[in-house]
């Protein structure tokens, strides 16, 4: 089974070589003319703020989205094998999945109605 992954590894090596090589080459070939303004953070030409938005200042909204994503991604994790084996599972599978999806739906409806999906 694992031999199936060898080609992927080969492709990975090729791509990685290409990427690293190019970046290295770009750094080597490119000119270097120092200018203080060049290496400042870009803020549309005005004086950059001394402390840019730090990693602690994400809007909470993003966490929310991440959590929602996790929930649905999990659902999909279960949906895939279920779909593949669907013909064998037939009625049982449909019933079980319907139950499962109903559960997720409830959570989803709650999230929606309570404004969890709103962006401002």
């Amino acid at each position: 089974m694992l031999s199936n992954y060898v080609p992927i590894l080969v492709l990975l090596v090729i791509a990685a070589l290409f990427a690293v090589g190019s970046v290295a080459a770009g750094a080597l070939i490119g000119p270097r003319r120092f200018n203080r303004a060049k290496i400042d953070a870009y803020e549309c030409g005005i004086e950059p703020s001394p402390a840019p938005a730090g990693p602690q200042r994400f809007p909470v909204k993003y966490y929310n989205t991440a959590m929602l994503f996790i929930v649905f991604d999990i659902e999909i994790i279960f949906l895939f094998p279920w779909a593949v084996a669907f013909d064998s599972l037939a009625v049982f599978g449909l019933g079980a999945m319907a139950l499962f999806m109903a559960t997720i739906f409830v959570a989803y409806a709650y999230e929606w109605r309570r404004g969890g999906l709103e962006w401002d």
Binding site: F72, F80, A85
Partner: peptide, 18 residues
Amino acid sequence: EVAMGLAFVAVFIYAGTL
């Protein structure tokens, strides 16, 4: 990505394989 994953499910149901 979630929507994308959901879009695949119907295909898998019909194909029966990944």
